[in-house]
Design a protein around this nucleic acid. Structure first.
Lengths: 347, 347
DNA sequence: GTCATTTTTGCAAACGTTTACAGCAGTTGT
DNA sequence: ACAACTGCTGTAAACGTTTGCAAAAATGAC
């Protein structure tokens, strides 16, 4: 019950109240084994009755630890990162760490400057889908880094097993009867995109499926909308999009043109963000356990702080195909789907 | 160019390099008017060549300021808060403040404990849609608070003008010809819900529209899905949902039942979260400038830190109706819409 | 009861800043 | 030539902790 205007009480106040020295208070709170039980309980009582909270700045000054962790994401508006952040925040809080968050606005320069600014204020940093070069990462102003969504030599990281997810998606489509599928690629530079391409290629080769790569498109709803017509023109009976946002964009534009999903075209997304289950039809997608990813990444970080090793470990997240209603058998020759309406965009 | 293993340089190092005392360095950096220009540039050069960054913990220890701000949201997974956070983060960064973020998981208890934990580590706190009682807020362990999405006596706040948004929505529906509309209410305790009800009632009374209130429902997609059948049964020709998530849920379930929007039922959401424009049909909704809200809230907070006044100011955000394609004229008697399909949930 | 050992405690230094105060040089006014 | 400034700089205290070291107290062995 701290009074409003009152100065926050310091370790000195507690020491006085308990009739001991500040050192004893510090130890009673931080190293319980070193003080007499009776003394300790006296200190604890005094501390709680004064509502004492240690000043973290002072502690940090001497220990060199801040008790803070940082998370940098390319875009706070992107749902993909929300649950990573949520998981990270929860795990950090459980370890009594606070979480700084910052938005690099998808720009490497901004990310570097955030890194620079945060480095001194945190014990460790989680970089989500970093845009930085491996070079820049290696000479970062802080070496307690964990990466999410990208693998760089020498830096611990947490990555989804995109290749396996891709394999699951392709297999699913193959079982449904599809023999020509298209991949709607994301940004060239993106590590995830490269992984997904590799997985696609391997899976298609194995199953004898004809694959084509469209794009790259902007990894957004708008990117999907723009890509919808080319996708249709490609002749593929199924398309796997770089991510859910793109898939939803494609679905949206297709719906506006009167092209039915999945009757005319099957559609698979990536990530399983919330919106994937909200569309009509709900999207079949490769789920990435993002919240768990956040938790695990923070765990790796905390481990690294404690032991100081784990330099190059990499945690690979299992992905799983969530089959909803945007995939089905390919259209049959005998029962052609109706002609699409004219493009609503040009009207 | 700091080397990797090197100790970060301190103000002492800079002082030695520039041949001055630490006090001069401190002043050269913090109070430029107090030192000779020549000295100052010597210091600046030394500082930059050493890559000097002041230790914020040490500074904070003496000034009592941390340079950090906190944002607490009920749910990091809720898109409504993402752009608030984004705006807040951007504005804070522009003022050289870092942002802590935490998730109260919609629980007042958790929120209080976060408040307690953060109070000492930040200069000010932004509480989004706080679940705390006015009492609890008044005796918070920190008095540099700003509220978003709620108005409490004595606490500065930023709130959307929901009542006006509601008026715009109702007017829009009235112009289209609707005379019976339903409001699908959100959580009873929610301040926003109360505002929206008031606005609805006023607007309907003025325009002579019959209104009914359904719910309350959970302010989520699932809540909307569950409410869809009752909405249909209510006999209203248009429904305004507590928020977009609920509206999208309703639309989703309606689509699955074969009920056409807006031909059979017009649908209006609230907030204009990204998903509102991604559905088919895109959702007509009352837009709340959430990113601006975050910016403004932080500005209020920074103001408060500087001057120390602005105790009870309240900033009201203008809302604006975004007309998309989920609203249209009510169905006519002469052209009844087809019978809805059986509920897909019960099959 | 004494000594050696262990447990418990206190003193004081350190962490990296900011800032009140004092001092020192140069300038101006008489 | 002296006083009173002004402008710039340095010294040292303070912020609230943690922790090495030494002192004190308690315990055990004889």
């Amino acid at each position: 019950m701290t009074l409003l205007g009152a100065q926050p009480s310091t370790i000195k106040d507690v020491a006085r109240a308990a009739g001991v020295s500040v050192a004893t208070v510090s130890r009673a709170l931080g190293a319980p084994g070193m003080v007499h039980d009776a003394t300790r309980s006296r200190v604890l009582e005094a501390a709680s009755s004064l509502g004492y909270r240690p000043n973290r700045a002072a502690r940090s000054l001497i220990t060199g630890r801040t008790g803070n962790l940082g998370v940098i994401v390319p875009d706070l508006g992107n749902p993909y990162f929300h649950s990573v952040l949520k998981g990270a925040q929860a795990r950090a809080r459980a370890a009594d760490h606070a979480v700084f968050v910052a938005d690099s606005e998808e720009q490497a320069g901004e990310e570097a400057s955030l890194l620079e600014a945060m480095a001194r204020q945190v014990d460790g940093l989680l970089l989500c889908s970093s845009r930085l070069t491996a070079r820049a990462l290696a000479r970062a102003p802080i070496d307690r880094l964990v990466l999410f969504g990208r693998r760089v030599h020498g830096v611990p990281s947490v990555v989804p097993d995109s290749a396996d997810g891709m394999r699951q998606a392709v297999t699913h489509l193959h079982v449904l009867g599809h023999r020509r599928i298209a991949y709607l690629a994301g940004p060239r530079r993106s590590w995830s995109d490269q992984q997904r391409r590799k997985g696609l290629e391997a899976a298609c080769r194995e199953l004898g499926i004809v694959q084509s790569v469209l794009g790259p498109v902007s990894p957004t709803f708008a990117g999907g909308v723009e890509a919808a017509d080319p996708v249709l023109a490609s002749g593929a009976t199924a398309v796997i999009a770089y991510n859910d946002l793109v898939a939803v964009g494609v679905a949206h534009h297709l719906a506006a043109r009167g092209v039915r999903v999945p009757e005319r075209l099957s559609l698979v997304g990536f990530d399983d963000i919330p919106v994937a289950s909200m569309t009509t039809p709900p999207l079949t997608t490769v789920a990435v356990p993002t919240e768990a990813a956040g938790r695990i990444a923070i765990e790796l970080l905390l481990d690294r702080l404690g032991r100081g090793d784990t330099a190059g470990s990499c945690f690979e997240l299992p992905t799983s195909l969530v089959v909803r209603q945007s995939t089905g058998p390919p259209p049959t020759r005998s029962q052609p789907s109706p002609e699409p309406r004219p493009n609503p965009r040009s009207s």
